[in-house]
Structures are given as structure tokens and as C-alpha cells.
Design a protein around this nucleic acid. Structure first.
Lengths: 205, 205
DNA sequence: TCTGGCAACTTAACACCGTTAAGTCTATAC
DNA sequence: GTATAGACTTAACGGTGTTAAGTTGCCAGA
């Protein structure tokens, strides 16, 4: 069928694009290279994707759901305290970013111009990752492990902290002499501490 | 003198590059456009700058020292508590980033490929900004406002937190419904709280 | 005054890029 | 047998960073 061959080629384009993205980085990803790799002319890609941005958006979505898979498996891994669970989610996020720098770059570091027409339903998918953090935070609020606060706000603050450390490591902005693992560990630790309840007037002392 | 006219043109190139960077953004900054703007051929720029990266590095350095000026004036503005002073530095950093998105982009969000040959002495300048944070932190340690910790590590953690929130705002990754000012405020607040001493076993209660 | 050389600058070109318009070929439907 | 539709390509436009080679004009030394 026409549609099936269309889908097959579409998948081939995406697979090649992903491979080139990971091997050469986003800066070197070009329509012409993808085309050459799959043995078609560059214009053929435009029969399956409106433009390069749309192709990249598909890769972003892929990245988002890969990350979601990682976070979800951590999320479902209970048996530990709420604080430890949130900490694990943070660690998982950082690990994903450092292990998938090219995915991370297009997902969270690309200039917004490239995302201008990023479809709303894909944004919603991305938010699901934030909601995992928010959910655990809310649990923590109920268990008096964290201060009462809008969970999505708290999740956003935690996320932006994780993003800061990941993106600075990826873009090599930290001092060479600095132990990156310590910065990452301290980042997670400090921001979580920041949400813990004041213990000053603890009643049991 | 030959050198003087060289410098004059060099400055003209830089001024134009800066103007175009701010008006059109880094993505649209091209050697040809700069050349057209100053009425020279594109190749003339290569007589004064080795390549586009070197030109951008000069702009980055400019940005770093602009930011340094801002931070320094806040740094020298004492009469308040140490914690408030560190908070002010953080706020100043965020304000600079949001007010100078194009500068911020090339300074901290550009892909490391573009910075591969960024000279070491310019890195040192960039570190001076981090040292301002570290210095105030150290003051806080001595005043028992912050936990004892390697000041450069603490400064890096605080910086990466600020960078996270700035870069996510600039690249429009936060949910539209989220109050950015609150995220920024909470980010600063929470990370500083994370460095405060444990008050659990406070002796005066 | 002539000449060599140098500095400043330009033109032309290379090898890329995303993207579009127009054209080709082939298989199927009538 | 011919028309149509789908899949694909070629050629081109206007852009990019960058380099090699060429031009121009001025100034020093003979």
C-alpha cells in the first residue's frame, strides 16, 4: 500500500536522523546528509516531513518519551521514603541528560525559534514529566516531608535546578577543576532541603 | 597609523555585530550582514578577526564584563545581611539574563563546539563572576548564616540554579500558565535555604 | 622619478545549508 | 490505449562561513 511504504520510508528517515543526531550532533544534522544516508534525494524528505523543524520535533517527542520511560520506572519503584524518591527522580533526570546529550540539546536547549510551531499536544506530553515530580512532591506535602506549596511550582523549581546543572555540564561551562558529580549531588540535595519544613520550633525537642 | 585605522574598523565591526546580535538574535547574525552594514565586503572582517567564533568570543567577553559590572555594584552595596546580599546577587544575575537574552545566549547557552578554542584568559574573567558569589557565601559561612562548604562549590550550585531558571525562561520551556517571577523567586529562595545551617537542635529553644 | 613592496580591500569561488518549482517516470484505472 | 496519480529527482534560489587570488593605492628606497 502507498501509505505503508510511506510509513516505512518515514521511519527510515527518522531512524537515520536519530542516528546522525547522536553520532554527529544537532549542529551537523542536515536534510541533505539524511537523504544521502538513505539513498534518496533531499527533497524526498519533504514529502514526509513539512520541514526540518517538524522532523526535529518528532525526535524531541521521542526524547521526551524516552525520558518519561526512565522517570516512570523510578517513579514506580517505591518502598523508600518520599524524599528519597524525589531525589531518585532528580538523579534519573540528570543521568538521562548526561547520557543523551544530543537528545537533551534538542529537547531543552534549542533556541525557541526552532520550536515556534511546536504542537500543543506535544507540549502536553513534555509536561507529564514535570507532573511526576509534582506528584511525588504532593505526596511529600501530605507526609509533612515538604512544605505546602503549589506542586507544579515546586516541580518547576526543582526541574529548573536540574536543568541548570545538566545544561552547564553539557555545554562545558563549569570550571575544569570542579568535581561535576559533587555539583550535581549538592544541587539535588540543596534544592530538596530548601523545600523541607522549618524545624526550628520542632515540638519534640 | 595603520594600527589605529585597524582598531577603528575593528571597533566598527564589533559595534555592528553587537547591534545586529541584539536586534536580530544570534541565529541571524552573519558575517555578510555585518559587512553589508558597515559597507565592506565580508572578507574584510577576516582581516580583523580570525573567524566568526573569534568575533563572537569578543562579544561574549563584553557580555561577561557587563554582567560583572552589574554584579559588582550589587556586591559593593552593603549595609544588609549576608543572606540578603547573596539573594541580591542572584536577582541581579537573573535580571541581567532576562534583560540581555542575546548576550546571555552566546555567554551561557551556545553549544560548546563554538567555544572549543575560547581562550583560557577569558574563562578566567568569567570565573570572576562566580567568585563574587563564592566570596559572599564565605562571609556567610563565617557569620554562621550558611553551612561550611567549599565556597566555589556552593557558588557553582547557586549559579547553576540561577542559570537553569534563566535559560528555561529564555528558551520558553516553562508552562505558559506558570508565573515566571514566582519560579524565579522560589528558585533563589529555596537554594539559599538549602545552604542554611540545620536549626533542629537550636540551643536557644 | 621610477620601482618594489606592502597594506587594505574586493572578487570569485568552494562547499555547504533549507527549501521550492518543475519535471520525470511508472504503475494502475478506466 | 490513454489519463491520472504517486513517488521521486533535477535544477534552482538565496543564504551561510571561509579561502585563494587579484586589485588598488600609497609610501620608501634607489
Amino acid at each position: 500500500m502507498a501509505q505503508e511504504s510511506e510509513n516505512a520510508l518515514q521511519r527510515k528517515i527518522l531512524d537515520t536522523a536519530r542516528r546522525l543526531l547522536i553520532s554527529d550532533g544537532y549542529a551537523h544534522l542536515s536534510m541533505r546528509k539524511i537523504a544521502k544516508e538513505i539513498g534518496y534525494s533531499a527533497t524526498t524528505i519533504y514529502l514526509h516531513f513539512k520541514n526540518k523543524d517538524q522532523l526535529v520535533h518528532t525526535l524531541i517527542e521521542e526524547g521526551v518519551s524516552r525520558l518519561h520511560g526512565r522517570l516512570l520506572s523510578r517513579f514506580n519503584q517505591d518502598g523508600e521514603g518520599v524524599r528519597k524518591r524525589l531525589q531518585n527522580l532528580c538523579t534519573e533526570y540528570v543521568i538521562f541528560g548526561l547520557n543523551n546529550p544530543e537528545y537533551y540539546e534538542i529537547m531543552y536547549m534549542l533556541h525557541p525559534e526552532r520550536l515556534a510551531r511546536y504542537p500543543a499536544d506535544k507540549y502536553r506530553r513534555a509536561r507529564k514529566n514535570l507532573e511526576l515530580l509534582a506528584c511525588v512532591y504532593q505526596e511529600g506535602v501530605e507526609g509533612k516531608v515538604f512544605q505546602r506549596l503549589d506542586p507544579m511550582l515546586a516541580a518547576s523549581v526543582i526541574w529548573s535546578n536540574m536543568h541548570g546543572v545538566v545544561s552547564l555540564v553539557l555545554s562545558k561551562r563549569f570550571d575544569a577543576g570542579l568535581d561535576k558529580d559533587r555539583v550535581i549531588g549538592e544541587s539535588i540535595e540543596r534544592v530538596l532541603r530548601g523545600f523541607e519544613p522549618e524545624k526550628r520550633k520542632s515540638s519534640y525537642l
